[in-house]
Write a protein that binds this DNA or RNA. Sequence first.
RNA 1: GGGCCGUUAGCUCAACAGGUAGAGCAGCUGACUCUUAAUCAGUUGGUUCGGGGUUCGAGUCCCUGACGGCCCA
Length: 500
Amino acid sequence: MRRMEELNIVMKERLKKAEIFEQEGIALYPNHYKVDHKLSDVVEKLKDRTAEELEEAKERFCVAGRIMAIRSFGKSIFMHLQDDRNRLQIYLQKDRVSEDQFNFAKRVDIGDIVRVKGIAFRTKTGELTILVEDFVLLTKNLRPLPEKFHGLKDVETRYRQRYVDLIMNDFVREVFRKRTKIIQTIRQFLTERGFMEVETPMMQIIPGGATAKPFKTHHNALGIDLYLRIAPELYLKRLLVGGFERVFELNRNFRNEGISTQHNPEFTMLEFYQAYATYEDLMRLTEELFVALCDAVNKGNKQIIYQGESINLSPPWRVYQFMESLVEIGKLPEDKITTLDGTIELAKSLGIPVERYEGHGKLLTKLFDIVVEPKLIQPTFITHYPLEVSPLSRKNDENPDLVDRFELFIAGREIANAFSELNDPRDQRERFIKQIEAKQAGDEEAHEMDEDYIRALEYGMPPAAGEGIGIDRVVMLFTDMPSIRDVILFPHLKPEKKGD
RNA sequence: GGGCCGUUAGCUCAACAGGUAGAGCAGCUGACUCUUAAUCAGUUGGUUCGGGGUUCGAGUCCCUGACGGCCCA
């Protein structure tokens, strides 16, 4: 049901005008007009031509765009047309177009989409301009755009009506162009290295592969509950069992948790798996990937500025073992963190709530989140995580309490998580059982048993390493955006009004 | 979930110490053939987020709810 809305004065005027146009036989939404050139291509092509060169060439162009500004005189009119990338000025003189078209051009509104044909030239002030010979309406605007100088600032409106945000704010269009470029670059990078892109279920019977609360839905015909995936991990590893040696999936995950500047309920994740590789191989691959991203969206410059901090992405990146980072970066006393009692004491002194089901490893990661993570501004790999918090990772050969895993941190945030994969089905079953015990003790996020996954491992999964990278955070990094909402086209917000 | 801040014209913002709700842009009318935040003259437009309360009087104070931002958990 559409909400009835009081029409403001401007909209009333526009509707009235639209009716008059129709009575005059002017189509408001015609679809048969073609263009010869994209507006931005004309700007790109001619931007360095001098006034004399343009005068000499007298080249004609037919372009379309949205009217963003009108400066109207008695017998001449200037307008700015905009497409997704550029703005181009057009100039109408009364004696250069038909009288009907000139009179019509006098009555169009900011926000209308029009097509013009004309000759490119430079004005006295040197601005590239099309001298119009033909002017037609393509789409009538009925709703006034935000003010031309201050634009649209209100963040709520920007997120709820992203289409207006995109019209008004050039930097927003740039952010999303960069986002697309980053995703394309990642696909190309992996494909060139023999990875195959695959699609695995978004609706899963057992939500696995991560520790998070899932969204629940229901399949009517089957009469079963399904969960939106929190990760594709266990399906991708089934493909390793099946014989695909390098696979990746770059798509949405869903986690039923709070919304913040770092979290959207649906977010984009890259996961890739490589047989016959270790987590250390993936450290090198990750460094190479970021270099490729610098080439693609940062002109090859490996220095980026994020929220005022200068970050150097040149490899090799520094590496700390998990325990080492707590002592050296977190400045925690080594003798305390090596014992459970000492760790509980430290946690309590830092105001961290300690749950009964949380073991030593889990508590250490809570300490890490507070005392180490925010300090990891420059790219840093943290390795050798506790077994307890890594139910799908391969045990370290030297120390069975640790796993062959790393996480990557940049700008004080977790960007990637990777490990050598646990492929011993007997060990995996034990790990699942431990998780179930944690769940029974109250850990809502603990992993569930997945018998089919165990069955797959029993057929034999080749030794492999896998990694997940949070794409939204990578985009934030490369676009210098402080909130995940700034890099997601339509971020989740509460509904604006109760239904009527 | 908690704390702080915010919500006023289509947009960006004012409104002292509680005393008739304003400006710029946009819109409308008119003038103007190289302007670019065009200019000049005139002019329309308000459920001050919703609901209660205090008061002679509430955009402003109090209570409550909605939505948003930032921080914390």
